[in-house]
Amino acid sequence: MKIPVMSDFVAAGEMPEVLFWVGCAGSFDQRAQKVTGAFVKILQHCNISFAVLGAEEGCTGDPARRAGNEFLFQMLAANNIAVLNGYGIKDIVTTCPHCFNTLKNEYPELGGNYNVLHHSQYIQQLIDAGKLAMKEDGVFKGKRITYHDSCYLGRANDVYEAPRKVLEVLDAELVEMRRCKSRGMCCGAGGAQMFKEAEKGNKEVNIERTEEALEVQPDIIAAACPFCNTMMTDGVKNKEQEEAVKVYDIAELIAMGNALMDVK
């Protein structure tokens, strides 16, 4: 499928409504690519004019900065800000809470000022604006869904309600884990942990969190972050529950609920 890139818009002398920041996971990770696809389907379904940067996008620098490599972070950030400012970008939406946090909170000091939304907030706005009505006989009716808070969305940015509001329209049964919202437990991937082996301990963080999720006997664990998604999926596999319990991003759930995507 042809996805509009910024350079096309500029060539046509136009501006998209919003720039979709895909992120490294969304671009390269097979599982996260599906989430990217689902979100694109939602944007198209709602007739949103959007663009991506394609090859001009680079890592926001989140893992480099959190690992302690500020030089590398500043390099990556400077390049991205040059591209974004060059195109005169004002509005950005992203499916990754880490990109969201860096773009929104850390780029302004470096000269990059944008309105940044996480896709949970963006989808909520679409629903509120009546652009995204749900089908009557929801495919998720009667299913138990538990939402796992991403640290970089929740505690880092106090976004607790948007993803839950989005899930509410699915007409499913939402159940909260023992630790949720500001007390939500990390999946174990943040702070560049995703890119190295865990330190010595007696358990993996994602297993601990998955056990907590399984306690509430969900049919679906909903995530809003590509890294949480990986961690929870691995956890469910480790517990040999992958037949009974699925891990989906909220964008996938909304896309499936609107028959924009096959229900798997």
């Binding site: 890139v5 895909v22 490294c24 390269f28 696809g37 394609g54 090859a55 890592c59 620098g61």
Partner: peptide
Amino acid sequence: LENNQAPWQFNPEDRLKWAEE
């Protein structure tokens, strides 16, 4: 990150490959 602008070893030119699928 330095060479491919991504934490993994992927070709930066392939950033939009997901669209093909």
